[in-house]
Computed example of a mutant assay.
Amino acid sequence: MTRDEPRTLLHIDWTRCDGRGLCTEILPELLTRDDWGFPLAPRHGSDVPVQDRLVDDAVEAVALCPRLALSLLQDQGRPGL
């Protein structure tokens, strides 16, 4: 992992999400939303790399998610992330 690669991942649990879209408003640089309000992370699955400068916003999105559908993970150098 190089110094520029994000070390934090925003995990989206779509089974908990009800598409309110608050996370997409807090993190517009990382997330968009589909027609029903569910978050989408272009070029990523359910684990979205978070640049260091956006970690505080990601923490806020996790804290404010009404369905607890978001969590933050630390990338431990796992292959493919």
Rank of each mutant, 00 (worst) to 15 (best):
T24E: 05
R20A: 09
C17H: 00
E25P: 00
T8P: 02
P6Q: 01
D34M: 06
P39L: 05
L22E: 14
L10R: 00
L72H: 01
L68C: 10
T8E: 07
D57T: 00
Q76M: 11
L31I: 07
P6I: 03
L73E: 13
R78S: 13
T2A: 09
P49D: 02
G21A: 08
D4K: 11
D75P: 03
L30S: 00
W36C: 02
H44N: 12
Q74P: 01
D75K: 10
G45K: 09
G19E: 07
H11C: 06
D13N: 14
H44G: 04
L27R: 04
D52E: 15
P39E: 07
P42N: 09
R53V: 14
D47R: 15
R53W: 07
D18E: 12
R53G: 07
T32C: 05
S71H: 04
L73G: 03
G37F: 09
W14R: 14
R20L: 13
T24H: 02
R16Y: 06
L81E: 13
V55C: 09
W36Y: 15
L81G: 11
L72F: 03
I26H: 01
W14L: 15
L68M: 10
R67A: 10
T24P: 01
Q76T: 12
D57F: 09
A61G: 02
L81A: 11
L73R: 14
R3E: 15
G21S: 07
V59K: 15
I12C: 07
A63P: 00
D47T: 13
V48R: 01
G19C: 06
E25M: 10
R53H: 14
A61N: 03
P79F: 13
L9N: 03
G77W: 08
V50W: 01
G80M: 06
D47G: 04
D34I: 08
E25F: 12
R16M: 08
D57N: 15
T15W: 10
P39R: 00
P28C: 04
E29C: 02
E29L: 11
D52F: 06
T32G: 14
G80P: 04
P28D: 03
G19N: 07
A69N: 01
D18S: 11
T32K: 14
D18N: 09
D13F: 08
W14E: 13
A61M: 05
